[in-house]
Design a protein around this nucleic acid. Sequence first.
DNA 1: TCCATTCCTTGACGCAGATCAAGAGCCAAA
DNA 2: TTTGGCTCTTGATCTGCGTCAAGGAATGGA
Lengths: 245, 245
Amino acid sequence: MQDHFTHVQCSDCPIRHRAVCARCDADELAQLEQMKYYRSFQAGQAIIWSGDRMEFVGSVVSGIATLTQTMEDGRRQMVGLLLPSDFVGRPGRSSVAFDVTATTDLVMCCFRKKPFEDMMSTTPHIAQRLLEMTLDELDAAREWMLILGRKTAREKIASLIAIIARREAGLRKRRPQGMLSVDLPLTREEMADYLGLTLETVSRQISALRKDGVIVLEGNRHVSIPDIDRLLEEAGDDSDGGMLV
Amino acid sequence: MQDHFTHVQCSDCPIRHRAVCARCDADELAQLEQMKYYRSFQAGQAIIWSGDRMEFVGSVVSGIATLTQTMEDGRRQMVGLLLPSDFVGRPGRSSVAFDVTATTDLVMCCFRKKPFEDMMSTTPHIAQRLLEMTLDELDAAREWMLILGRKTAREKIASLIAIIARREAGLRKRRPQGMLSVDLPLTREEMADYLGLTLETVSRQISALRKDGVIVLEGNRHVSIPDIDRLLEEAGDDSDGGMLV
DNA sequence: TCCATTCCTTGACGCAGATCAAGAGCCAAA
DNA sequence: TTTGGCTCTTGATCTGCGTCAAGGAATGGA
């Protein structure tokens, strides 16, 4: 069931052109090839706990992970959603501030932290790409803050579906044709943690969007979107801001 | 009233050791010195509008700016708070996604975008420092997401005061002695935009924290904190997480 | 000195979303 | 086939915060 990835050549890697190594040339890739190793995680398994000493950094190759923060009384907020090619870990700091958890079976391409940091200081291509990725994440976090702070429950759900559709579209090569459709990679509870809601409210709002014809459900997890502009309108986004398609 | 900053030597600059230029050596500083210029903004004045073409990047030298996002119907969320030494602008992208506004009189040290980008690609010290600063901002954004998504109004206010106290403490050299005290650099409405609340709720919760002795007000803007641990407890933070003092 | 403006506080009331509760659908193990 | 464990849906009720409204305090300009 689970891919094995005992060792894949970087040149054959599915995330070769999107990950931290995207700008590396053949020499640099060979150097990374030396220090990398693959690691698999099962759905639900912790990758790192907040406060843990972290001995590696790396990229998600396949599967989905979440970054969450939990308060003492159990309230929980998701603060990052990691798809293939996303980077895990913070160079220059010994521990993480958030829990990282695999929500599906997942494979990571790991680098031991020290050699990677050393390489980063001598190889501008890596630091440059990591800066670019971090700036993108910061933009996404800020968009997310608007959702958390100011949007209604219905708008939050519509926004989440739009975001997932956009990210899925970005990962695939081909243009989506026909009706746009998305597999939600999260349970209702995880969506609630993403959006600062309860799982009951998530369920109710999904039902409401379905009744109103904004989305079509096939099973619990699969969503078709008859009219993407309608969805973006429900999300409260500028009609042009989507840059989807 | 307003500082003039016609031209300050980098070596005398108050943010020399915290800004994007922190790691630059004398040569690199001389190069930056060539391309920099100062620009002043009045309280309330826009620095850049969302979507504008941006012809410069730069550092806040003195004063405070906010980064905000606004929905079509006027709902507004602050997504960044810029204090002296913070960086404005995104290398490698031609426009900004957020409104940047001076909330006090403010001085920026600006670099024209193109020469700065060119220098970044040849001077690792700048890209490295910018990466570090961006990672810090991302951490702050994620902490903020927990506040927006899961905290109560009272916890939000306590968290904001704690954050401002922490950042002010970071900017000053000397250890604060005696009772910790903070000047709120924001109006009630700006605090509301920061926290995803209304200004009325902000006002009510500040009054409540005052009545309960968690904070002491002197005027509307000045807050003293008799017991920082009590404040952090009210903020819902781990007692140890503060790293203040 | 007076007035206008901006910022802040406080009260009354309503509603969106939380909480509490029950049960349905689905899958895997017994 | 039954049982137990998830995940999800839906209903009833409660409550924290938003909304609407009025007025106070501070500041600056005429």
